[in-house]
Design a protein around this nucleic acid. Structure first.
Lengths: 149, 149
DNA sequence: TCAAATAGTTGCAATTTGCAAATATAAGAG
DNA sequence: CTCTTATATTTGCAAATTGCAACTATTTGA
């Protein structure tokens, strides 16, 4: 009841390790862990700008700019000028980028399901619903998870 | 039921942001995020060696060695040669290191409780129990969360 | 007693990071 | 319409982080 931090710290660490390993396994030296986060978020959003993705990930925009350039050079991400505002670049995944994102997604998802498979149906449902609940609560709380300005 | 990855990806990301912000807020330029992870794990284990902490965090031992040196130079971590084996260094927090770790712990814990406070008692309990359950399942699963050899 | 194993540290060289300053474009005031 | 200001993104640069290979120091075991 008290030590909530421990739970989340360990969870986040373990998921991070799993994520990193999966990333290594499915896409070899193709993309780094942070780059995989970028692919993930571009895929998730609808015609996002650089700012939007960088903001969602809490990344410094200059660091982000360079990482996107790397991904674009590798042919995984495409930058399209916004039709109504040339300052803005719309980001999208190329077919190759999408393939990598999908590979990572399937691998991570399979690992997670493997872990959940040790539980009863009821427990599994409860765990999933709980995390959903917590994510929603986090989203609503503006005191946190808002990247610094 | 299907898309478990999304849930964990977002959870881990948001907790990461929260963790980072807390770290900035309580200890200013004192320690970086990775260094805070090191303090956390040293505090958690009982007379740990370098290998044990680096292993738990999935960090490369050489990177870890340098980070520990930085922390030792700052006076937050102490390295004590193992009495029975001089190759091994036992790591421990200095009072200053412990103070920082405690400050981070309290801040993160408070934030998390703030988020949980928007839920009913029942929901709160369920969420906490669920994460406990999942962490245990992860620990048992040897297919993941085992840093690459 | 000496060859292998183990713990940890350094020498690089590449990558990543973020602040400050620059560029490019758009929007608004007059 | 023109000039100031705001917004989006990129670069310069210098510091911090990373990891592989090689090295040192100790211990273990044949």
């Amino acid at each position: 009841m008290e030590n909530v931090r421990n739970l989340f710290q360990i969870l986040a660490r373990n998921f991070g390790l799993l994520n990193e390993q999966c990333c290594d396994n499915c896409c070899g030296q193709e993309v780094s862990l942070v780059q995989s986060h970028i692919l993930y978020e571009i895929n998730r959003q609808h015609q996002p700008s650089m700012q939007e993705i960088a903001g969602a990930l809490g990344m410094d925009i200059t660091t982000f700019s360079r990482q996107v350039k790397t991904l674009a050079d590798k042919g995984f991400v495409k930058k399209t000028p916004h039709p109504a505002d040339n300052r803005i670049n719309i980001l999208s995944l190329t077919p190759e980028g999408l393939a990598i994102e999908n590979a990572i997604h399937l691998t991570v998802n399979a690992q997670l399901h493997g872990i959940l498979s040790t539980m009863s149906e009821f427990e599994k449902d409860t765990v999933i619903r709980s995390i959903q609940l917590f994510n929603d609560a986090m989203q609503k709380s503006d005191s946190c998870c808002v990247p610094p300005k």
